[in-house]
Design a protein around this nucleic acid. Structure first.
Lengths: 242, 242
DNA sequence: CCCGAAGACTGATGTCGATCAGCCCAGCAT
DNA sequence: ATGCTGGGCTGATCGACATCAGTCTTCGGG
């Protein structure tokens, strides 16, 4: 093992990477940069920017409507790409805001595409990672389109827990969560007021407690049932591609 | 030019492919198959299946909830992949239903990954196509999360028009559309009853008429304004990668 | 020490869209 | 010719969630 960044850990879960491949991956990381919470790193409509890999902290990608509403599309945690799609499509269709202070490493598209040429398996790995992100957005769409506020919140908190558990940042008891109720509202297509009420209901039902930057699963099984949560697509075991 | 399938047309818009690359792409197409409208080709939870490229007709990908509701995630038109994500993630997180009778060509994953090794630029092209699909799902998420029923419908019809126009199947006057009002309801997170009312309102407002398998834009500009539709991310000009 | 801002929280009121319960028409099978 | 099915269409009613208009606490800055 040459490197053990969150990215390597994530991709390694899918493709067993050789040492040369790992070193190509490591060479992608250019400048290390930091951004403060709340100050966008990418703006909707912006063009010609770099992509990043999140090293520490949380970020979110969102779209703004002309009437001022916003929809948070996804949250990113360490190991996730920031703005990869923007770079490939050559213009950003969304903005990215750090939820906490974050550290990232810059990746130049040219380098990434070169790396694909040198080590095509890396291309497969990145395609896989992109598919995984898309699956997340799809699940989010179902959440917003077909579940009521309570189920939606429950499902979201569970899914995030599962996702964090994969990188060792949470378990069935709960996880640290720096999101505000406003973040939840913007992500779930609810008003902040209603988010607050729904959280109270879930808490009073003894299922989950969201408080002081921490999500505590008070009754994991009941919550799973209530949210119709199916964790199967999250857990797969070991590299698929040898 | 060796081939001029919808797929080549689509990918060619992004990556200028050489003749050897085109022939690799052509060699991916295996068996040609047909499926009848309404009979799923991929079931949620299914594993080990092939991917397809849609040659003619329309399909939709959707997720089923345990309470019987369904959310249509996206519609596919000729040139689009069917089930690529399912294959990469090794299990299908969604089902796919032909909206009309369809023709597809089968693609074996192994062949696809081999092709990446032979011609890495192909990998980039497929990654780009996947990003474009993801952008579509993201826009759909915003639709469902933050727009009211009228705007949602208007935006959806416009976006689909733009998408069809790209492959020569529609323009600012309208397009042929085989969807039922039930399809629209399942896609937009509305009830079929409400879809009907909303369509009536849009028709009576003189903006768009959905009838007899045809969408007619009666007042394109007004509709664009009403839906806050921003077509910019759809139109890009010529291959980005030389 | 006070002020302002951010975030959590709450009650009252209003509305958008779901649900229920139908009708109508065209196409098709019996 | 009769009934059945799928799709489009409609009125009445109801409830989930938005909106408005606040309060309270904490925290950092002047």
């Amino acid at each position: 093992m040459i490197d053990n960044t969150p990215l390597v850990r994530k991709i390694g879960a899918f493709v067993a990477l050789s040492d040369p491949e790992l070193s190509v991956l490591a060479s992608l990381h250019k400048r290390r940069r930091t951004f403060v919470a709340g100050r966008d790193l990418v703006h909707q409509g912006q063009t010609e920017q770099a992509a990043y890999i999140l090293a520490s902290g949380w970020a979110c990608s969102y779209k703004l409507l002309s009437d001022g509403q916003r929809q948070i599309v996804d949250f990113q945690i360490p190991g996730d790409f920031l703005g990869l799609r923007s770079v490939l499509l050559h213009v950003s269709d969304h903005s990215i805001e750090p939820v906490t202070d974050i550290e990232v490493t810059e990746v130049l598209v040219a380098d990434l595409l070169d790396a694909f040429t040198q080590t095509p398996r890396l291309a497969t790995a990145v395609l896989w990672a992109a598919s995984r992100d898309e699956a997340m957005v799809v699940e989010h769409l179902v959440d917003v389109g077909r579940r009521n506020a309570g189920e939606r919140m429950a499902h979201f908190l569970l899914e995030f827990g599962a996702r964090l558990a994969l990188v060792g940042l949470g378990n069935k008891d709960g996880y640290a969560c720096p999101l505000t109720q406003y973040h939840l509202a913007d992500a779930l297509g609810l008003s902040a007021v209603h988010v607050n009420r729904v959280l109270r209901q879930l808490r009073e039902a003894g299922m989950v407690t969201f408080r002081d930057g921490f999500v505590a699963f008070d009754d994991y099984d009941q919550l799973v049932k209530f949210a119709q949560f199916d964790p199967s697509y999250m857990d797969h075991k070991g590299p698929i591609l040898r």
